[in-house]
Design a protein around this nucleic acid. Sequence first.
DNA 1: CTGAAAGCGCTTACAG
DNA 2: CTGAAAGCGCTTACAG
Lengths: 310, 310
Amino acid sequence: MGGSGRVTLNDVAAASGVSRATVSFVLNNAPNQTISAATRERVQQAASDLGYVPHGVARALREGASRVVVLNIDWGLEGNYSRSYVRGLDDELAAHDHVLLVRHGHHTPQATQQVLDTIAPRAVLRFGEPYLTGHELDDRGGGWRDGLAAHAALQIRHLAEHGHTRMALALPDSGTPLAEARLRFAGQTAAALGLAPLASFVVPRPRSAGTSAVREFRAAHPGVTAIAGFNDDVALRTLTTLHDLGLSVPGDVAVIGYDDTEYGELVTPALTTVHIDAEAHGRLAARTALGLDTGGLVPVPARIIVRDSV
Amino acid sequence: MGGSGRVTLNDVAAASGVSRATVSFVLNNAPNQTISAATRERVQQAASDLGYVPHGVARALREGASRVVVLNIDWGLEGNYSRSYVRGLDDELAAHDHVLLVRHGHHTPQATQQVLDTIAPRAVLRFGEPYLTGHELDDRGGGWRDGLAAHAALQIRHLAEHGHTRMALALPDSGTPLAEARLRFAGQTAAALGLAPLASFVVPRPRSAGTSAVREFRAAHPGVTAIAGFNDDVALRTLTTLHDLGLSVPGDVAVIGYDDTEYGELVTPALTTVHIDAEAHGRLAARTALGLDTGGLVPVPARIIVRDSV
DNA sequence: CTGAAAGCGCTTACAG
DNA sequence: CTGAAAGCGCTTACAG
């Protein structure tokens, strides 16, 4: 062993009496190589005896990419979607001997380039991108089976099943590209169900501004009896403003959330919401990034968490 | 330039008519090297003309570590502490030409070893560790100036200033090593202020279990008039249980949160809480990881966000 | 069936 | 003041 700490291929080669190349072939199960069983055995034994583990940086230099996948995510890991997605991504990557590393915050293209230049990751993923387009799961058209469209529809349908015919989508004030898609899918669902055209409004911060916005919206759309939140945060803020306006939920107006955060259970009335298990989405993203087969991945369908706000 | 995309040191050397070594010296401002101003100029011009950017993987192989710092963090980025900490860490690292990458979830030592072997990061940090010990900022003894102890004390003091003399600390059910420290610091503060010994209890999930726990605690400690939450989540859950028990806040009992999440504003009564700006802690962690001077970092003191629950 | 050699892109003693 | 050379640890054509 080379004096310092690290056990290298050289050490394994020396210990097993073969060349570095042979060790590499054995350890990587190189195809088209016919190495005697005895030699393989000897090499593997030596490697494990010495506790050899390949140096990823050297390998990355040679192969052109490290066994790392980087995930860019704007900020927190609020709802169940992002948490389960990250979990699935992480697990699947680990199963294929790769490591997931995430970057938080808004990043410039230069910053992303810096990451590329610094560690040459196998891939850099942008959170939510496939979900938005719905192209994943071989389910074109916005993911009407297991994607955004399906989940948007589930939310609207739950309201319809409770007798509501006039609804609105409550949006966050930070404009997100997802808002437009959600509005479209929810609107299509309402149309398909023969409901009134879907309205929408923004719930700004802070609390007082949200209250004004909701008051104005109610005045302009007195017929609306149910509000679908773009996410649980908006739904929770809507619940708050309704409370401040002296309205009762679900008596005066029903509210449903989206993407199940842990705070939904804590308010009164507790928030009914859409629970999305995105672990399969995460695994799929992992396999796609690695250029692997994506078949046989069965996503768990989204479901409604029934509480008291609808 | 080498045919494919990447511009290497070789290309810059060729373009400026010097050796690779010279280019490296110029670009890294190598000390003890006296290279003519004209040559430096020529090299720098060529580098920028070609858009040369050093290949981090090669550099990492050579230097033994990549310009990456990995942060392990159990799960989300809930409160203001973790968000501001990550922001400060990220910014400071970027200022020193390093990249922050985070890993979420619980990780085994082997998994961490894999990260080390894969990208040879300059350092791997465990979120919250310095905060817990309070060793940062040269402020021993649990961080009574800008650390955990100071923040624990601030919370208790706020309650005391509102006339409360019997208090309890509400804890999460997931045991955290921080709980013990918080309890100790808060208890010491109560003692120093001449208050009754600090009680404590756990607020389990789900909502109904929390309610039972709080009911029992109230029965056992009828004199307690104020509850300090271990974090905003616990405080919010306490608020909920109090509501379910038909108690009014702050009339019957006051509640104060810790580490300002965005949901505190949304409940009724809105949650008074401790706001911790940990950007300086993040910057400090960055400088420490890089072996840099840590002087001159002035943390913003924590402060109380006064709302309606105390 | 196995080994010697080249090369991924960089930095840094070591010579001149 | 500047260049030739070695080497970080690995993989993979290419010879035997």
